[in-house]
Design a protein around this nucleic acid. Structure first.
Lengths: 270, 270
DNA sequence: TCAAAAGTGTTCTATTTACACCCATGC
DNA sequence: GCATGGGTGTAAATAGAACACTTTTGA
């Protein structure tokens, strides 16, 4: 199991790593700022503009694709789960804790490793809250990019990001995954801005309100949030018993890491 | 990169393999028997009973789980794509060619490798036509099992099969994947039996007919198939320009292997 | 008082569901 | 004829889109 050279290696097993597509919304996407008694709002949560999705990339410090931007990632060890490995890769490069983490796809094959050694990447995608995203210092070769204005990326990472964005757009339609991009409490307009940022189109406020309330996954807190010179909006939170995904209650949900659960709890449901 | 013992190995990279969940319908699911000028029908395609899903498993010949049934699989080499590796694993154990092949999920972590060396499995799922399934000789420790009556299986393979079945049930709702389980030409009742077998429930014949025809993915051949003492049914085929999945035209569809395309062509569209 | 967003009501249309009914065939 | 599934019609229920309108606030 030790390899003399590259050509000999091609017949053996490829290297194995894990990568993460980390997504967050910017401050214009109307995210409630934490504890929400926000008569004394700072400039931030305007809520009127449409937000954009952002993701952090790391600059490569070796060949191939030296100097290019790439997804955070790491090699894979045997003593932790795939999801824990993705969690660790995310944490070690960005010092953030995801509110959501799910396996996206596994990429491999000789075509993608041009110039390097063969590599199979188990890719996860993650959602982080706006608060944590804003706290990330852009140092150590880590930089945020808007999802609709990405730089040239290493390997097939642009394909991977596109697929992650597609998955998010799909999933927001049939699950309550938007809860991982908004704060603990939020107005319906703020939640709508999240949907609009992800889907890239405007939604009818009236119909959006009815659709959300009809799903019975929201719970009115009784509090309100004033924002601008108009009627204050009621604050909601996601019902604690609402799972992210109603669809598959079987095997895979049990694989959700305790770490992510903890992070999503502390980050969101205080 | 060579490992002295198991405990040392746990800190290094796990082994990497590929497994396949292969699904097929039995003869009662109303699959048209090939070239379809079948006034002279043999006993087979009755079409009235509800069919079941079946899958081939292989008996393990070494520890751990010696003697248990397991999914077909193989180790991973660097010089072929993941999908080609899955294709090869399927072909070498069952001598069948899939009409559909898609990545399902990648399983890993220390929990699943109890008793063995750490292993990451990239799992694919495949659909094969009834004709090929019937031709599989049950030898070399390969045996068909009904999906609703599985034996005790090795590792976490039961979880994996459950997930594959869930994926099939979901996907049949929003894609034309059923085309990979029926024959070249088929009646609407036969197609409905496929849906009923996958979904596990009866469907209204009238509404099913309208739904299928409204999708414009079916093309009437002009021929008919007589079957029993009642009015003969029109034969349809899937329009050649209908992709399996309308949803994601981006990156991943380009990854579909030429081998599977060829197999699905020869198997289906003659 | 006025602008602006919160929130409600209403209409219209497309889709889904349930089920009645006629049609063509073999026995 | 008549049982049987192929195939059509139709009405009720449901879901979705569009948009008018009323309410409540800050300035």
């Amino acid at each position: 199991m030790s390899w003399g050279n590259v050509s000999e290696r091609r017949r053996g097993a490829p290297d194995l790593g894990v990568s993460v597509v980390i997504l967050a919304l910017d401050k214009h996407a109307g995210i409630a700022s934490g504890s929400a008694e926000s008569e004394q709002n700072d400039d931030a949560s305007v809520g009127s503009e449409v937000g954009r999705l952002w993701l952090p990339l790391v600059r490569r410090v070796k060949q191939p694709y030296f100097g290019c931007w790439a997804l955070p990632g790491a090699g894979l060890r045997s003593d932790i789960s795939l999801e824990d490995a993705a969690f660790a890769a995310l944490e070690s490069t960005t010092a953030m804790h995801p509110h959501y983490l799910e396996q996206l796809y596994t990429f491999g094959g000789p075509a993608r490793s041009q110039g390097g050694l063969p590599m199979v990447s188990v890719v996860y995608w993650a959602l982080v809250g706006q608060a944590e995203a804003a706290a990330l210092h852009e140092e150590n070769n880590v930089h945020w990019f808007a999802a609709d204005a990405l730089p040239d990326m290493a390997f097939d990472h642009e394909t991977i990001v596109d697929y992650a964005l597609w998955r998010l757009r799909n999933k927001i339609e049939y699950s309550s995954i938007a809860s991982r991009l908004v704060g603990n409490e939020f107005t319906l307009t703020q939640l709508r801005h999240v949907y609009e940022a992800v889907l890239g189109k405007a939604l009818d406020p009236a119909n959006f309100r009815r659709r959300m309330l009809a799903s019975h996954s929201l719970h009115q807190t009784g509090r309100q949030q004033a924002e601008g010179r108009h009627r204050p909006a009621a604050l909601y939170r996601y019902s604690a018993d609402t799972p992210i995904e109603e669809s598959y209650e079987g095997a895979l949900t049990s694989l959700i890491s305790q770490k992510v659960l903890a992070a999503s709890m502390t980050g969101q449901y205080q």
